[in-house]
């Protein structure tokens, strides 16, 4: 501490001279953080579509920078510490960006190569998020009492398609029953899932759309889950 004692026998570089932040600053920082928390909850209750994620991350980042700057004293830290800590975020971005570059483009090969097919099953291979949304698997809840009649209407969309049963998981099988047994397994029909249109639209942008859409429409989506993996052949045995 600069003003505490004079250490005449040593140079200025001998003792630590910490910067002491006024208590009021800390209180202010806390108030801001609580306000931002309130704001992020507020933003959650407003429907902004895809922007909700952006807003949430943005507010979180503002909060994080405030914590870093004042509570963690990054403002007064040795420069290297600041660079290295922020630099680590750069590596996180690489990690995220590159991995997403794969997961978002997988199974969408564009004009040259066509649709990727799993050699084991002849089905479209695991990939592209948008297509999976349309094919997303759902478990149907038991009908509410007095709602039985409506179930049939939905039933059209039901398929016998297996849900990748956790039976395959040893532990669950030993327990006698899989948790999903409760609801009758059902795959979302292409016409039913609200995202199907979205997927089709997206697929429409590429020349391979007919192939993809056709495959979906033909009901070949059963076992998609299985083809995700190298164990495709096994998981499709339900067909």
């Amino acid at each position: 501490m600069a003003d505490a004692h004079a250490h005449a026998e040593h140079g200025d570089d001998y003792y630590v001279h910490a910067h002491i932040t006024p208590a009021r600053t800390y209180v202010l920082v806390l108030a801001t953080l609580l306000f931002l928390t309130f704001l992020t909850v507020l933003a959650y209750n407003v429907h902004l579509g895809d922007w909700n994620l952006f807003v949430a991350v943005l507010i979180a980042t503002i909060k994080a920078s405030i914590v870093g700057t004042w509570f963690m004293h990054l403002k007064y830290e040795q420069r290297f510490n600041l660079i290295f800590f922020l630099g680590s975020l750069f590596f996180v971005i690489i990690f995220l960006g590159y991995t997403v570059n794969d997961t978002e483009h997988r199974g969408r090969q564009g004009t040259l190569t066509g649709v990727r097919v799993d050699p084991a099953t002849g089905k479209r291979a695991f990939g592209s998020g948008s297509v999976l949304q349309a094919e997303g698997e759902f478990i149907r809840l038991p009908p509410l009492p007095g709602e039985a009649g409506q179930a049939g209407q939905e039933g059209e969309a039901d398929r016998d398609g297996e849900v990748p049963e956790p039976e395959a998981a040893g532990a669950a099988a030993e327990d006698g029953a899989a948790p999903t047994a409760a609801g009758e397994p059902a795959e979302a029909g292409d016409s039913e899932a609200p995202t199907a249109g979205e997927a089709a639209a997206e697929a429409g942008a590429s020349p391979t759309a007919p192939a993809e859409a056709g495959e979906e429409a033909s009901g070949a989506t059963e076992g998609t889950e299985g083809t995700e993996a190298t164990e495709g052949a096994e998981a499709t045995e339900g067909e």
Partner: peptide, 23 residues
């Protein structure tokens, strides 16, 4: 616990494991 991150039978992605591993 079979949390369904890498396990394809639960909707996970084994290729994701490879990304993580090789990162």
């Amino acid at each position: 616990l079979s949390i369904g991150i890498f396990d394809p039978q639960l909707g996970g992605d084994p290729v994701l494991f490879q990304h993580f591993f090789w990162f």
